[in-house]
């Protein structure tokens, strides 16, 4: 929309958005944000389900994925899509590279930082995870300082980076007051099939069966001839890859990335995983959507100042009445 349109709307005396339109708009926004959170929450919950480790580095891994995507955009010289075009094909290499990269890095982290501590007291890998998170954070800071045009020639390493609008932000509904952009549609088009694919994998494949077995009882699984370390490694790869996809979706939707984004988004995702019942896949998705919705509705109907308070208030309420989370059951159906 050009600025003339805005003038028309104001001066032409068009109605304000009706209450139901506003609600619908907030639902669209809440679900889009929630889907991204859900995708990251899956990474937390899968790893927890199988090794009972809260992988605090997952949020920062997600951040690195976004930096890789921006580096690709810079290397390919990609620019915002022109008017009328829906998206740039330049997003394809991102959707290939980021998951491979994040999955690979996550596997390495497990191999180097968590596997040696597999039989140590549970706090040891947790501290290790926090350490990895700091390492990633600083890698992100250094990465943002690279002398590339997209990183402002490295002059402002920590500044938020503009991610080119490779997916159009134009309103699909045209003149309507309700905004639904291609980038919002993309969030669903990418995340929903991934989630379905993941549950098919866990439920119906050999690997999925092995994962469920390891989650239930690693010792028994090993006795049955399952290579437990391989299965755990695969879980880290899948969880990381989902984080990688999420990072690209996030960057295309929000158009800004910065080295600290992993912390906040990671916190939301972790909260989502706990809310839904940590270790439970559909629970993580539900938790993500619930948090996205709480955020949107609080922004609209209460005040932005209360948004974070509301998210955690709901979390506490849920945990009081259902300590295992919305869909969680005790130790049974993990992963």
């Amino acid at each position: 929309m050009g600025s003339e349109d805005a003038e028309d709307q104001r001066e032409g005396g068009r109605e304000l958005m009706t209450d139901s339109e506003v609600l619908l708009q907030q639902v669209i926004i809440g679900l889009s944000n929630g889907m991204i959170i859900a995708l990251i929450a899956l990474g937390y919950t899968m790893v927890y389900g199988i090794v009972e480790l809260i992988n605090f580095a997952h949020g920062d891994l997600f951040m690195l994925g976004a930096f890789l995507a921006l580096t690709i955009a810079g290397a390919l010289g990609l620019d915002a899509v022109s008017e009328g075009a829906l998206f740039s094909w330049g997003i394809l290499p991102m959707f290939v590279a980021a998951p491979i990269f994040c999955g690979g890095v996550n596997w390495c982290v497990d191999r180097l930082a968590y596997r040696p501590l597999r039989n140590a007291p549970r706090l040891a890998p947790l501290v290790s995870a926090i350490g990895v998170s700091f390492v990633f954070l600083n890698i992100g800071l250094l990465w943002g300082g690279l002398p590339m045009e997209v990183f402002n020639m490295g002059q402002t390493a920590a500044a938020p980076k503009d991610f080119p609008a490779l997916v159009s932000n134009e309103n699909l509904l045209g003149e309507s007051d309700i905004t639904l952009t291609i980038s919002q549609v993309l969030v669903f088009v990418i995340t929903v099939p991934l989630m379905i694919g993941l549950s098919v994998l866990v439920r119906f494949t050999r690997l999925g069966k092995a994962m469920r077995a390891v989650a239930q009882n690693p010792v028994a699984a090993r006795l049955m001839g399952i290579d437990v370390d391989r299965v755990i490694g695969a879980t880290f790869i899948i969880g990381g890859a989902l984080g990688g996809v999420a990072s690209v979706v996030y960057a295309l939707y929000n158009n800004t990335i910065y080295f600290q984004m992993g912390f906040r988004v990671g916190l939301d995702a972790f909260t989502a995983a706990v809310l839904g019942g940590i270790g439970n896949l559909p629970g993580a998705v539900l938790g993500g959507l619930v948090i996205g919705m709480i955020r949107a509705l609080t922004d609209q109907y209460i005040a932005t100042e209360w948004t974070n308070v509301m998210v955690f208030a709901v979390l506490i309420l849920v945990l009081i009445f259902r300590p295992a989370g919305l869909l969680g059951t005790h130790a049974q159906e993990k992963v």
Binding site: M17, N33, Y250, N254, Q260, M261, R264, A296, Q300, E305
Partner: peptide, 20 residues
């Protein structure tokens, strides 16, 4: 309103403002 400076986006807030 005081925003959360670390939020990933402000689309909901924009909708609220848009209505006014």
């Amino acid at each position: 309103e005081g925003i959360d400076p670390k939020a990933s986006n402000y689309r909901s807030l924009v909708t609220k403002m848009k209505q006014k």
